[in-house]
Design a protein around this nucleic acid. Structure first.
Lengths: 254, 254
DNA sequence: ACACAAAATATGTCGGAGTAAATAGGAGAT
DNA sequence: ATCTCCTATTTACTCCGACATATTTTGTGT
């Protein structure tokens, strides 16, 4: 996001975007700084220019700039101390699973290694979640999953609607675990899945039809077969990982 | 935290606490509001008093109050809109794995159900992490684990030093996975473990000596035996969960 | 070379004024 | 009486300028 766009966000920008961190001015600043940090423009240990200087550079008031810094600080990206300035924290302090931070990470060209890590997390969490979901799901959960599946049948994963249905399906599984701590991982996993499908598309490595795998997971959960659900999800995640790996190689070969 | 304490944070409070959200004024406000929200004093859907009114009530400026709200907003606890006010978001929007949010959750009497959920997440993540750690650890990782184990041998889990050593051990395992996404879960799991040991102590259900279980995990990781490491960690987590369950029952029986 | 004190500087806090946005309420038309 | 549109109010959002506070740096003295 350029400085001009930030200044524009201050005025009434009739852009079509309905939500996101770009609506309010301090949110736009946080978005810009967040993406700059995640993209490596500001590296850990770097010290940002002083409040007055940076705020003036961005053509915003010091108040708005400070509120943006508070947001970044709340997500562990930066820390400020009097006289010492505001410095970018080491990467291990970043709340990488924060939805906004993930969004900033995927705003630019995401680090391939980080995507691999997210997939590894997914491969750990989702089969276990499917196991719990098979034990705890109720009719409403199954209904939502069924609707998501039929939506996936209608729209391809190349469309935003299709990807949304995919996210809905996985979210429904996590919801069925009745575990808040697991559910918050939905955003992380959803982001990884969403980006990956777009990625594979760009790499012209159209993925195999993932629907049958999803149906197998659904059937096991609906039947209440915990082990079968975990195993089916395992297969699904492994295949997705494999597809992503080959897509990455294709893209690297260009 | 009372209003007086917030006002005190504005002046030079020579308190011994070296870090934490209580040092700066807006951090103290965020801490107060955060704990109040996590404790249920403000329920999801509730609308906070207006900026001017609430800031005056807390005897702080609107700037400081607003910066605190930005922090809470960044963690998904609240959302503000002109005319509508600032309202507490539904619980599923909260970033429950955020270190600060976890701290606020454990500041009061934590929800038993939430603790159970954190343990469930731990039971999923840690064995898998131990498996990866056994494959990827290097000498430095093993050295840190060994030091943490000897520290656990010296200090009991009833001391803060002992609990710190326990946290260090588990953190070292997650670090050895070389997976950023897994590492950020360290804070969550560490918080749960830390609180649980204190909890069991309060319930006068002194836990069995956890050291042998930890040693078994270490041996398997040092040997590079992935499956044995996962299995040993499985045992460790299961035993901890069992201890916690009985401790909770003891406390509920009072 | 070291210890302590003073100055410099950046963040932190404050109070007030004005702007923009969303809801509530009323005027008008159907 | 119901609905639509407009107006008005309320609230958060932004900006500004000033002062306070904390930390680093510099300087001074021993």
């Amino acid at each position: 996001m350029t400085e001009a766009e930030i200044a524009k966000a201050a005025n009434g920008k009739p852009g079509k975007e309905t939500r996101g961190p770009g609506r309010r001015l301090h949110g736009a600043i946080a978005h810009k700084l967040g993406t700059d940090i995640l993209s490596g423009k500001y590296a850990p240990g770097d010290i940002l220019s002083g409040e007055v200087a940076f705020a003036e550079e961005l053509k915003v008031s010091r108040s708005a700039y400070r509120e943006a810094i508070q947001v970044l600080s709340a997500k562990g990206l930066v820390a400020s101390r009097p006289k010492a300035g505001t410095r970018v924290l080491p990467r291990e302090r970043w709340n990488l699973l924060d939805p906004d931070v993930l969004g900033w990470a995927f705003a630019g060209e995401p680090d391939v290694e980080f995507v691999r890590n997210l997939f590894e997390l997914r491969a750990i969490v989702e089969p276990a979640a499917a196991r719990l979901a098979a034990q705890r799901r109720d009719k409403t959960d199954l209904k939502i999953m069924k609707e998501a599946l039929s939506a996936m049948r209608q729209h391809s994963l190349t469309t935003e609607q299709g990807r949304a249905a995919d996210r809905d399906f996985h979210h429904a599984i996590l919801h069925a675990t009745r575990n808040d701590a697991l559910m918050v991982l939905s955003a992380s996993i959803g982001a990884a899945v969403n980006w990956t499908t777009q990625f594979k598309q760009r790499a012209r490595a159209l993925p195999r039809n993932p629907l049958p795998d999803h149906v197998r997971v659904y059937d096991a959960i609906a039947a209440g077969d915990a082990e079968a659900a975990a195993e089916a999800m395992n297969v699904l995640v492994d295949l997705a990982l494999e597809d992503t790996r080959t897509a990455m190689q294709n893209l690297a070969a260009e």
